[in-house]
Design a protein around this nucleic acid. Structure first.
Lengths: 194, 194
DNA sequence: CGAATTTCCTAAACTACTTCATTTTTAATC
DNA sequence: GATTAAAAATGAAGTAGTTTAGGAAATTCG
């Protein structure tokens, strides 16, 4: 169970046996039922969450009550209200389980301590922040350049596992369109194929 | 000149005199003329750039030749094709000077060395990556939630210095609308005020 | 299993934003 | 300081995507 997170970290920094132990002891395994929240607005986000198994959705609710999906996370991804976690301020997002899931949580103070103790962990968290930044940048570019239909087509190619696992309304609001419009796109596609 | 960058870094990590010297020696001052490019597609981005004085714009060119602004940077901000820099891969963006400017450049290898030598620098780069990530996240949310007009109004409030210094077409493409539409929003606003 | 709730589909009317084409204003350059 | 180029404004026509509303599938859960 916790081996998986060690493997994940070792993609970026090699660890000694003691270091592996040290990391593992910071993460706590938690089972989350479908529809359960792990982050809620106005509460400060205490954890960074690694999805061991399952699926989550982070979203905000706009003034008129419309939900907008910010992120998905499935097996082997991270999810939090990042803004809330790194600044230790009240969250603005919900993060909810889309399936029964298992996550590994590290809490804010433990993470700080880990980074203080050992440069390798500082490096690890620097690398994942940088990669996250580059990832977000690509998303911003994609949203600026492409039409709704193109965004969907690209996403299907890049993240087929996610498309299959999340409800349509969540995917539509992630891609910046209504669920009705996404439905139309999908059916147009099916019609074309046959 | 180089004091400014030391002050900037010290917002996040305190430095000894030797460390200050060490950082300063890694940055090279470069004058850039208006319309000059510091990043171009297909070339690997060798530098992270701190804007000492001036204004820059990062943009991509879509298939049909339309330009989409990804970022602006004025005094005291950083700008690069981040994706190209951190992965040391060919750039997809242009970064161009909007005014005669002065930047401080650190090159990729020097930055790696700095981080290897001293944990403080690893921490510094981790923090700015995290903050950048949180910032991008807020932009994605804003784009999902707000109409074109709201995006403009919010941006004027948050970044008035930038609105005044960059051309309208660049701002429009940053906010995800056409320059014609932004022109209309602005003129509607002026009409209201009088 | 069966009732209730959630998710998805369809279609027509509507609107926020784009496109195209022309004119005016501002800035760059010799 | 005149000439040229670039940027902004304006109007009219078009379209991508939304809204609203009603019904059909699919899931959930007692």
């Amino acid at each position: 169970m916790t081996e998986k997170i060690v493997d994940y970290i070792e993609q970026f920094v090699k660890l000694t046996d003691e270091e592996k132990q040290q990391v593992v002891s910071c993460f706590k395994e938690v089972k989350i039922k479908k529809r359960q929240f792990i982050v809620q607005p106005n509460f400060t986000t205490k954890h960074r969450n690694y999805v061991y198994k399952g699926a989550f959705r982070a979203y905000v609710v706009a003034d008129e009550g419309q939900e907008h999906t910010i992120n998905f996370a499935i097996d082997d991804w991270w999810i939090t209200d990042y803004n809330s976690y790194i600044f230790q301020q009240p969250a603005t997002m919900f993060v909810v389980a889309l399936e029964d899931s298992i996550i590994l949580q590290i809490d804010y103070e433990a993470e700080q301590e880990l980074k203080r103790q050992n440069q390798k962990f500082e490096t690890f968290f620097r690398i994942i922040a940088e990669r996250g930044l580059a990832f977000q940048q690509r998303r911003i570019i994609s949203n600026l350049i492409h039409t709704a239909e193109e965004r969907y087509e690209n996403y299907v190619v890049k993240f087929p596992q996610i498309v299959q696992r999340v409800p349509q309304y969540a995917l539509a609001s992630f891609l910046g369109m209504t669920t009705e419009f996404l439905s139309r796109i999908r059916n147009k596609r099916v019609a074309k194929k046959s």
